[in-house]
C-alpha cells in the first residue's frame, strides 16, 4: 500500500462513519449543525494524528499486558492538551462542544487506529493514517451536520435561509439516526460502483 492510499483509505474505502461505523456517539450527538460537526471532526483529527504518531513511536517498548492503559494515557493527554488550547483560544467552540471534547478519549476510532494500525507501523505511515481517518471523520460529520442543519434549522453554516424553525425532529436524536442511515445508504451505493 503506498503513502497516498494510506491517506485516502480513511476518507473513502474505510471511512470511519459511513463504512466502519465507528465513533457513532459523538457523531450523532454533535452534528446538530455543520459548524459543530466540523469542529468536532477537526478536534478528533488533531488527537488522532498526534496519538497515532506517539503510539507508533513507543509501541515497540510497551509490554503487551499494559498496552491498553498506556495508549489511553497517551490519548487522554492529547485530549487534555486540546481542551486547554481550545479554552484559551477558541472559547466559543469549546462552549458549544463542551462535554464531547473530553469524550474523545473514549472515541473508538482513536483507540481503534492505535490498536489496529499505529502499533505495527512507522511514525510517518501512522500520521498519514491518522490524517486520513481524521479527514474522513471530519468530512462525514460536516456532511451529516449540514443535512441536519438544513432540514432542522433551515440554515447553512449558521446562515438562515428560511424564517422560523425547520423540522425540529432533525435536530434531535431521531433525526440524527435517520440522516445517518440515509447518508450511509447513499455513500455505500456510490462506493459499490
Amino acid at each position: 500500500m503506498n503513502k497516498l492510499q494510506l491517506f485516502t483509505k480513511g476518507i473513502v474505502k474505510e471511512n470511519p462513519i459511513f463504512v466502519l461505523l465507528l465513533g457513532l456517539c459523538p457523531t450523532l450527538a454533535t452534528t446538530t449543525s455543520a459548524i459543530n460537526g466540523m469542529s468536532m471532526g477537526l478536534a478528533t483529527l488533531f488527537v488522532l494524528v498526534l496519538s497515532n504518531m506517539a503510539i507508533s513511536a513507543i509501541a515497540p517498548r510497551v509490554p503487551d499486558k499494559v498496552h491498553i492503559p498506556v495508549y489511553i494515557v497517551v490519548i487522554a493527554t492529547f485530549v487534555t492538551v486540546l481542551q486547554f488550547v481550545m479554552q484559551a483560544w477558541t472559547p466559543v467552540i469549546y462552549k458549544t462542544l463542551g462535554l464531547f471534547i473530553p469524550l474523545i478519549v473514549v472515541n473508538c476510532i482513536v483507540l481503534g487506529r492505535a490498536e489496529a494500525f499505529a502499533n505495527q507501523n512507522g511514525i510517518i505511515d501512522s500520521a498519514l493514517d491518522g490524517l486520513g481517518q481524521g479527514m474522513g471523520f471530519t468530512f462525514s460529520l460536516t456532511v451529516l451536520g449540514l443535512v441536519r442543519e438544513v432540514l432542522g434549522s433551515g440554515s447553512v453554516f449558521g446562515l438562515k435561509f428560511i424564517s422560523g424553525d425547520g423540522i425540529l425532529a432533525f435536530v434531535m436524536a431521531p433525526g440524527a439516526f435517520l440522516c445517518l442511515g440515509y447518508l450511509m445508504v447513499l455513500f455505500n451505493k456510490f462506493l459499490k460502483k
Partner: peptide
Amino acid sequence: MAAESNLKNMALCLTLVCLFCSAVLAAVY
C-alpha cells in the same frame, strides 16, 4: 518486538509514560 510482560517492565513502562504525560500537561497548563 514488544518488551516482555513481567512486573518490572510493566511498572516501569506505566510509570514512565504517566510521568512524561503529566510533565507535558503541566507545561501546557
